[in-house]
Simulated scan of single mutants.
Amino acid sequence: MSDLIKFVNRWNSGDAFQNLEYLTIELCLDAMPRNEILNAIGAKYISPTKKPPTHTLPKRFIEYVDAEPKTNPITSHTYVVRETDSFVASILIQEKTLSFGAWNKTEKEFLRMVE
């Protein structure tokens, strides 16, 4: 869990992973402590009454013929903002999986997409 927090915090600070667009991490052990991770990474929240935008990207590598051409969608009410340029990444934690989708948008632009 501490490695997940370090990863997101390094992206937040602009120290690493600036070009990362999409990442899904699945743990083999216990479910992730969602609230603890979100607090540690300084997550921001979209109102539960609003519909957040869905993050998907074209896949750069397709494993087999019938594979989906896009990444799995990330639709989340939680996000983080990178300090260096105010760009946003959606964060979705479900049981043993953390999904990270970086937007090519500032927080202001991202929030305009919220319905």
Rank of each mutant, 00 (worst) to 15 (best):
P73M: 15
I46N: 02
I62F: 02
E109W: 07
F7T: 06
D66Y: 06
W103P: 02
T84V: 07
E21L: 15
R60L: 14
I5N: 01
E95L: 12
Q18M: 12
R60Y: 08
T49K: 15
E95W: 07
I93G: 06
L98I: 05
M113D: 13
F87D: 02
S47N: 15
R82M: 10
K6T: 08
L4R: 04
Y45H: 10
I46Y: 07
A89C: 00
T106Y: 07
P73F: 11
N39T: 04
K59H: 03
V114D: 13
V114K: 09
K70D: 14
F110K: 05
L29K: 08
K59T: 02
F17T: 04
K6S: 15
S90Q: 11
G42H: 11
S2C: 02
I37Y: 12
F61Q: 02
P53T: 04
G42P: 12
S2L: 09
Y79D: 04
M32L: 15
K108I: 12
T49N: 13
Q18A: 12
K108Y: 15
L38G: 03
L23A: 06
T97P: 01
E26W: 10
S47W: 08
K6Y: 00
A89D: 05
D85P: 03
G14V: 12
G14A: 05
A16T: 02
F87C: 13
N72P: 01
A102R: 09
R112M: 00
T75Y: 02
F87H: 09
L23Q: 09
V80Q: 10
M32Q: 09
I62A: 05
G14Q: 05
T75L: 08
N12W: 00
F87I: 08
F100R: 06
W11I: 03
M113H: 07
W11S: 02
I62S: 04
K108H: 12
Q18T: 08
H55V: 03
I62N: 09
L23M: 14
E68Q: 13
L4N: 02
M113S: 13
V81E: 07
E63N: 11
R60Q: 13
E68V: 07
N104E: 09
E36G: 04
S76K: 10
N72C: 11
T97V: 14
K44R: 15
L4A: 08
A102D: 02
V88M: 12
D85Q: 10
R10M: 11
F7Y: 15
I74S: 05
G14T: 09
C28Q: 15
V81A: 11
K51F: 09
D85V: 11
P73G: 14
L111G: 00
V65Q: 11
K6D: 13
W11M: 08
E95H: 06
P53W: 01
M32W: 05
T54K: 13
T75V: 09
A89G: 01
P52A: 06
V80N: 10
W103F: 07
E68R: 05
T24Q: 14
V8I: 15
E109S: 10
D66A: 13
H77W: 13
I41E: 06
N19M: 11
A89T: 01
F7W: 14
P53C: 02
T78M: 00
W11V: 03
V88L: 01
K59D: 04
L4K: 04
F17R: 10
E95V: 12
I41S: 03
A102P: 03
S76R: 06
L29T: 11
T106Q: 07
D66R: 09
K50R: 14
D30T: 01
F100Q: 05
